[in-house]
């Protein structure tokens, strides 16, 4: 089956800035794909390459098997939900939503009906006569979604669509977006710098840094088996053990990640690895206690269940964990 979006060694350089640098990427049809990364890592530029607002300075892009370089945005069946929504201020909500159909020459009645259906789909029926200025941020976001979806795009691009919403609305929209995507079967490419959002919504995630993909995989892969120190740092609050420490533990001398909840304090069984250390800080987080332990210069965070006793600051402890939870990484 052809990929929805295919990047082959794609670069987009702005002078000396390598916004996107030799990226290979294959997004499957019908997939919910998230692009995660810190500010300036090239996520938006990747999206703009797919939409056609930018042209690659190197490499090759295909959308559903067709070459996309040199094709203007208005001839791609790809639509975008912009970060600032970019609703047309001089048009009513209905005309905003019907805009794509209007420029394609679809009749007035037909496009009105389609636009009203799209508004109903995003739970804004009857809002058609208002102006964008008369809607709340969340409502505008839904209009932007309806305006894109009414064109039945093959790929929908969303650039931090929930960035401007408050936490509660955000969580609600995350769920709605996910449901909508499953029911429509459209390929979604979703940009975010919130790892929680990416982990909970996406089928697969690409983690970006400095214009390159650091790791591409399922949320579970990314969270549990970070391949580089950068991913471990960025995605979860994983501990990163240095290669020297790993060597002392008798595993191959490579840096490794270790999630805080995989570590136990004090008890150690035969098949487990263990490290001695001194408690330097602790804090109560509700379901867990967060304990910082200094193991010969290496700071390790332990998430200890609240039911377990917490050692005092300054106490000497043994940290125990299973070899399976220790993930060796390629040092970047």
């Amino acid at each position: 089956m052809t990929a929805a979006v295919l990047f082959e060694n794609v670069s987009r350089h702005f002078g000396a800035v390598k916004a996107v640098d030799a990226v290979d990427l294959e997004i499957a049809a019908g997939e919910f794909f998230a692009m995660l990364g810190p500010s300036g890592s090239g996520k938006t530029t990747c999206l703009r390459l797919m939409a056609g607002f930018e042209q690659p300075t190197g490499g090759h892009i295909e959308i559903f098997g067709e070459t996309a370089e040199g094709v203007p945005p208005y001839r791609r069946s790809v639509n975008t939900v912009f970060q600032d929504y970019a609703l047309f201020p001089h048009l009513s909500i209905l005309d905003n939503v019907a805009y794509g159909l209007m420029v394609k020459g679809i009749g007035k009645e037909e496009r009105r009906k389609a636009a009203e259906d799209a508004l109903a789909m995003v739970k804004l029926p009857g809002y058609g006569q208002r102006r964008p200025g008369q809607l709340s941020g969340g409502q505008r976001q839904r209009v932007a979604l309806a305006r894109a979806l009414v064109n039945k795009p093959k790929v929908l691009l969303l650039d931090e669509p929930l960035g401007a919403l408050d936490l509660k609305l955000r969580e609600q929209m995350q769920e709605e977006l996910k449901t909508l995507q499953k029911s429509l079967g459209i390929t979604f490419v979703f940009v975010t710098h919130d790892q929680g959002e990416a982990l909970s919504m996406a089928d697969r995630i690409a983690v970006f840094n400095d214009g390159k993909i650091q790791q591409l995989g399922t949320p579970e892969d990314i969270y549990k088996r970070p391949q580089t120190r950068f991913v471990a740092d960025f995605v979860g609050s994983s501990n990163v053990l240095s290669s020297a420490t790993c060597a002392r533990l008798g595993v191959p001398a490579k840096a490794a990640s270790l999630r805080p909840e995989a570590i136990a304090i004090g008890t150690s069984w035969a098949e487990q690895l263990s490290l001695p250390g001194t408690v330097t800080a602790r804090s109560f987080l509700g379901a867990t206690n967060r304990v910082s332990v200094d193991c010969s210069g290496e700071k390790i965070i332990v998430a200890s269940p609240a039911a377990m006793p917490v050692p005092d600051i300054g106490a000497e402890v043994q940290l125990a964990f299973s070899r399976n939870d220790l993930h060796l990484m390629e040092e970047a």
Partner: peptide, 28 residues
């Protein structure tokens, strides 16, 4: 998978004069 002809992902050039001019200006 269905054998139905799905609409093209990349739409063809618009044959009208403005369409062609628009493409040309976009590229240059």
């Amino acid at each position: 998978m269905s054998a139905l002809v799905t609409p093209a992902t990349i739409l063809p050039n618009r044959p009208s004069l403005t369409g062609r001019l628009s493409d040309f200006l976009w590229k240059h």
